[in-house]
Design a protein around this nucleic acid. Sequence first.
DNA 1: TTGTATGCGTTATCAA
DNA 2: TTGATAACGCATACAA
Lengths: 364, 364
Amino acid sequence: LVTTSRRPPKRRVVLADVARLAGTSEATASRALKDDPRIAEATRATVRAAATRLGYVPNAAARSLRAKRTHILGLLLDDLADPTHGEVAAGFESVAAEEGYAVFIMTGFHDANREQRALRTFVEHRADGICLASCVSDPSAVHRHLAAERVVFVQPDYPRLADGAEPPARGALRSDDPHGIKALVAHLVDQGYRRMAYVGAGATASDLLRRAAAVEATRESGADPLRVHDAGRSGWCDPSVVARELADDRPDAVICYDDKLALALIDALRDFGLSVPADVAVAGFDGIPLARRAQPRLTTIAVPSAEIGRRAAEMLVAAARDGSMPASETLPVSLVVGETTPRRRAIPIRRVAPSVAGAVGGHG
Amino acid sequence: LVTTSRRPPKRRVVLADVARLAGTSEATASRALKDDPRIAEATRATVRAAATRLGYVPNAAARSLRAKRTHILGLLLDDLADPTHGEVAAGFESVAAEEGYAVFIMTGFHDANREQRALRTFVEHRADGICLASCVSDPSAVHRHLAAERVVFVQPDYPRLADGAEPPARGALRSDDPHGIKALVAHLVDQGYRRMAYVGAGATASDLLRRAAAVEATRESGADPLRVHDAGRSGWCDPSVVARELADDRPDAVICYDDKLALALIDALRDFGLSVPADVAVAGFDGIPLARRAQPRLTTIAVPSAEIGRRAAEMLVAAARDGSMPASETLPVSLVVGETTPRRRAIPIRRVAPSVAGAVGGHG
DNA sequence: TTGTATGCGTTATCAA
DNA sequence: TTGATAACGCATACAA
């Protein structure tokens, strides 16, 4: 006698089933499950037991529809495979999860159309809050579809920003890149470097801002005028063109837009017979984990990416709670001195102990 | 005369508004917007115009509730800040977006409780499909709450797997790690190494599988018995303890559980006066971008993480469409020869040109 | 402390 | 080709 244990078409358990088993009304069951204080302890226990027994899992769609709160946050970022963005995402998700929010993550790849589609998705799902990281869409355009209390811009990268436009007074979150660049230039000058170059990555807003800061800092420091190069947009690109330019008109120190570019550049420079730091110093920006694992260790500006992600989520949760978006913030960055920017003319040492400078910058 | 442009309490535009403006019923409007073939071209145009004019964005919750399809996928992974997981996530999200699915991403950190909470969230939102990457929960446990047609296990890491349990016949996606390890050992032997060590990372299932493969491969190759060490779980940990062990009983080649560990270990070995590859060869696993940027370039086994993420999403989409989960797959990995495993006793060369070996392994 | 009734915004079923 | 109407599963205002 074999019973074919074919699963019955197992209709999903709904609240009504729980209520029936518990011998209460749906309303009571609903309240009991969310710890409404005006439900008797005994009733609550009965309902909970019934729910557990039936394996009841509430339907978020139905709840959202009725409650007009989704407990969903949307996160738009450039590229999940990028270390910096990964950290932002990790921090964001972590806080969101603690606060009981689920997170939709979508990628924009610096493409306005993709960003539009992502926003549309977030809006369709009526996300309670949305974080736009490194997005190229203008805040004013975004706010045409989204209330300001629901959006946080993280490291916004829309073109107007490069032209001096101010980021929004509330709901913007940035790292203090100019301060970081200044600290870096000061460090380089201090180490004896005079002929510096900046290598950008595609002339995005953040690139232009860092570049401008570098131009200003070198000028103020009395060093030679900054030479400016550009390696193009792509992340782990091959900056051999720039490497050649640098080999031809050799600076003694190179400031790169970010760590990825710096590491790739160090690699490319070898092909032109230039060794770092013996022949030329190099510094990056971001402070990705690889930077301090690289050989030689990369001097860089550490950006608190995970903290930025966390803070963004906190702001959205607060805004959802209070109905008003917290004021914009600028987080401090810190200079991390590695082995790629040793004291000029020093005898090449096999290994310089790395050290971390104190935090610089920040408006707090 | 100043008009206070205070925004009206702007009630959300709903389908009824569109229908009214278009002069049709809600049903017609709904159909027109989703290109139902039996709607007249003229009507469709009118409705679309009305929708655009009003800035109508459908409510996903309402749609899901009624249609019993959410177009949501859930992705559970260990850590968004980890390069490998980031790539999986990127691939997954990319396919999902193309197919019109939004993705919930949650992190588990190898913690069964966190995984449970994530699953619960996915189920509450009635995700059409769920991808569990590197999860430690047993498939049988997962399937108590989730139909098998909705779940894909990626690089599952539940304890039973280490004890020889087979992964599920459908809905499992793995890389062919044993094959990769074998290719690596063959390469090492070929380069003249005999005394090899394996450094694990916390004795997870995947760690144990790689270790077992290494033990077997060394034995079959006639090399000395494999020495086994363990550096513990954490990602970018400081493996100084293992470095000391290795310095005391020096092997000539070290196979690391993954690239992160390998890079950290190379770093730590320097503190014990061991230089890579002059004093000892080191190989990693995963093929993270940093591996080929590292100095010296790391020999590793490249795992197609992004492809795995893509495939996982494809399987879930297919399963949602067809109602049945595709068969499990094992993706091939490939040996990437870097500079950390040069031919033994060769004169130390400043730079060995890197090369990529053809793909090895794979059951397809 | 609990129950009743209604509606959230959409799609599917049935008629017309 | 279109329209009326009934769910979908839950939470809340109101009543008891």
